[in-house]
Amino acid sequence: MIEIKELHKSYKMGANSLHVLKGLNFSIKEGELVAIMGSSGSGKSTLLNILGMLDEADSGEYTLDGVPIKNLNETKAAKYRNKFLGFVFQSFNLINYKSALENVALPLYYQKVPRKQREEKALKYLEQVGLKEWAEHLPNELSGGQKQRVAIARAMAAEPKVLLADEPTGALDSKTSYEVMDLIQKINDQGNTILVVTHEEDIAHMCKRIVHLKDGVIVEDKKVEQVRASQYV
């Protein structure tokens, strides 16, 4: 599903340049649940942004679902994001003046889905994350865990090929974190490909594979025995 080869990325800062990603290689198959591990500043978000087409690598290859991702203009990148990718952010990034339902329906709007279908579909995904009753509520009426579940529903509503989650549990307490991970595992159980960026060991071990980043290189890439989050909920 995802294949990267010799991915390099550096940030220019005045005369200096900070080499953040130093030749990364991996491939992720359909249905995998992968944790990108590493301490703060190790380049996890940088990698995820490149995979999410929000940023571009300096060199190397990136193929998504057989499509080489290269030299995209903003419009093309937007279309690909809409078609291929779902995003989940640490700070949820819900639109505060839109209800939970409207937030979930938003990517469908950019897919030009008619309103009725948009709402039906959005409601279906809200139901999957257990928030059907909260459909008409604004984000500030929801708890952190609920917000993140709305964000996950929003990411899934567009039926992306890959779900990219950057520290999805970073702003949550451990109990809520496990609830969110339980949800992510269930979505993965349905066959969806998911990448989770985290710096927490326990969260990483709830995935099926851990890619360990350190100083811009992959120091470890291993399959792990998945810890089910449901037992902590």
């Binding site: 279309k79 995003f87 990034n93 505060n96 938003l106």
Partner: peptide, 16 residues
């Protein structure tokens, strides 16, 4: 800014 960024991440083109 953030909202517009989110919209872009969700697939809004610059023209939209």
């Amino acid at each position: 800014t953030k909202e517009l960024g989110v919209r872009r991440a969700l697939g809004a083109t610059p023209a939209e």
